[in-house]
Write a protein that binds this DNA or RNA. Structure first.
Lengths: 120, 120
DNA sequence: CTAGCGTGTAAGTTATCCCTTACGTAAGAA
DNA sequence: TTCTTACGTAAGGGATAACTTACACGCTAG
């Protein structure tokens, strides 16, 4: 992952349980780094580094005031990721529906013209 | 990423432009490995390895018949990924709406009681 | 001022990714 | 059978990710 595009960076950031958990905790409001760090079995710098990854991916925003650093959610990258997945899914589902309809139509046609063989 | 959960594996698989492009190409129907490989500036084994990643992530299915290997889309993991993102987004947007409403209400209250200071 | 807290970052280690080339296998063609 | 095609996989190397500990900085409290 060497200087990837925004979407790749976002997906890579989401590909870690700790980072996803951080995002879920931030849903209920901004938290400081230490507030977050107590929940994970790793050092505080490790959590800080996870936050750096999330920040570079555009998934959190950090607002440093005095010695505290409030971390809050950002959504631009999440929107992009969701958009990509939804586009992918929409086409696939549509394709699946077409196949389904085709099969149903063929079945009806078979049934209408002849009922020579019911079994497969 | 050492033997992660399904969701992490899916996001990690999506965090690569080549793999996302493979998924997009498969939207129009199954393709063989060689069909896919011609589009990328890398060796055929590299594409095969990308497909292995996608398969382990539950994003593609491979159906080997004779010496050809048809690759097609699978959606279970994509559904999971979409669900996670949507859940995250829903809560965040709701929270944003609440904040917005709170600010608007406070602004109205300020305006009603006193207009002592307009600037910040 | 000094002491202490909350934080970011540098350095180092280990594990993993992503590519390469080389090789092995199974099926079709002659 | 022998040659070719389509493919998977092992082996290896360079880059990177995810931790650790150690340290430096800014702010607050006394």
């Amino acid at each position: 992952m060497v200087a990837q595009d925004r979407l790749s960076t976002a997906f890579a950031a989401l590909a870690d349980p700790t980072r996803r958990d951080i995002l879920m905790r931030l849903r209920s409001g901004p938290l400081t780094v230490s507030d977050l760090a107590v929940h994970y079995p790793m050092s505080r710098p490790a959590v800080s580094q996870h936050l750096t990854v999330l920040e570079k991916a555009g998934l959190v925003a950090r607002d440093r005031r005095a010695q505290w650093n409030d971390c809050s959610l950002a959504t631009a990258s999440l929107d992009e990721a969701a958009a990509w997945i939804e586009q992918q899914r929409a086409d696939w589902i549509e394709r699946f529906d077409l196949l389904d309809e085709h099969l149903r139509r063929r079945r009806e046609h078979d049934r209408a013209t002849d009922n020579h063989s019911e079994g497969d």
